[in-house]
Write a protein that binds this DNA or RNA. Sequence first.
DNA 1: ACCTGAACACCGTTCAAGT
DNA 2: ACCTGAACACCGTTCAAGT
Lengths: 199, 199
Amino acid sequence: MQTRPRRYHHGDLRAALLTRAEETLREKGPAALSLRELARDLGVSHAAPSRHFKDKQDLLDALALNGFERLGEIIAASQEGAGESFAERLDAMVRAYVGFATANAALLDLMYSIKHDPEASEALSVAAQRWAEEIVELIGDGQSRGEVREGPVERVGVPVFATLHGYAGLAVSGMLPPETTEHGLDDVIAHTLRGCAPD
Amino acid sequence: MQTRPRRYHHGDLRAALLTRAEETLREKGPAALSLRELARDLGVSHAAPSRHFKDKQDLLDALALNGFERLGEIIAASQEGAGESFAERLDAMVRAYVGFATANAALLDLMYSIKHDPEASEALSVAAQRWAEEIVELIGDGQSRGEVREGPVERVGVPVFATLHGYAGLAVSGMLPPETTEHGLDDVIAHTLRGCAPD
DNA sequence: ACCTGAACACCGTTCAAGT
DNA sequence: ACCTGAACACCGTTCAAGT
């Protein structure tokens, strides 16, 4: 009756595991994430996930990798919709990043956490690097417009990356005084613009 | 034979648990941290820790709180040993913070992680705030010397805090391109100075 | 190929009972 | 006050066996 024959029980257990895992991560935090419960939720045996992820950490790595891919898309999209000036493009990028961070707090925590397999860690570094290149591109563009001071793009970009990442992290972990959320983003953007401005 | 009588079995189990927990955190990561193993290491029953920490999370919270206290001391010490100019003081603080971060990577991860009890979370926010006030003080001092632009200290300080925190986080999670560690710190300091400079 | 079911060695937490 | 020992309900991981 089905033209696309179901696979053994589930169809696409791997994707279903990732989707469900991210839901529980978002709703109940990383501590509540258990392979057995995931399997229960999806109606498969507790041993089934091991066909798709050798390990719990392997699933977490896949989750993080997927997060970096989506982050990259969001950042890229923010640049396409933005104006041409460096200030406008920076503004759009910062808002896109902080928006992703606050909407996916637990996932972001996972993406930048330390406990990755050395093997998967390389794939993650590459993924993280790829979106960081959006910053490099932004800086380079700003330089060619004369709106950003000269210097190797990577070196100008690192402090910008750090500021962005740090602000998102502080906002997400609730370490910012409540009244700062008001002007916090604007202040960060203005500060970054000053830091990048030519002499 | 001992003037200071031992308590029941251990003497000061609470402190011993914290010490040992931080060791395993440092050496084997947060995933390897188990109350039962801690108890085994210290030669007490697996139920003994519950007399001192109601929960595993309670122990983690205590670990984080202790981390913030030590961080505060280190930051304060960096300011005492530093020169008078804003640039010198900022330099000292950044190096102290990044030094602490790289020397206590897993602990820092824990300190800023999201999964704290709402109750303990408040105590942690206070502790985090206290060291953040060192930044506020630094900014205020810089302003009175005419080396930092005017404006509410909290608003000038937030981007500085974010940059510092973000750079430490990136360095710790290995997300910085290897060649940046060379000049990374210097670039971050220079960038921050530009961002803070008066017009 | 993909999944099951049982088994193993671990967890965290609780609670009567001991000293 | 502080700790033990047993018990409970969970884990992650592995592996023969099923379809």
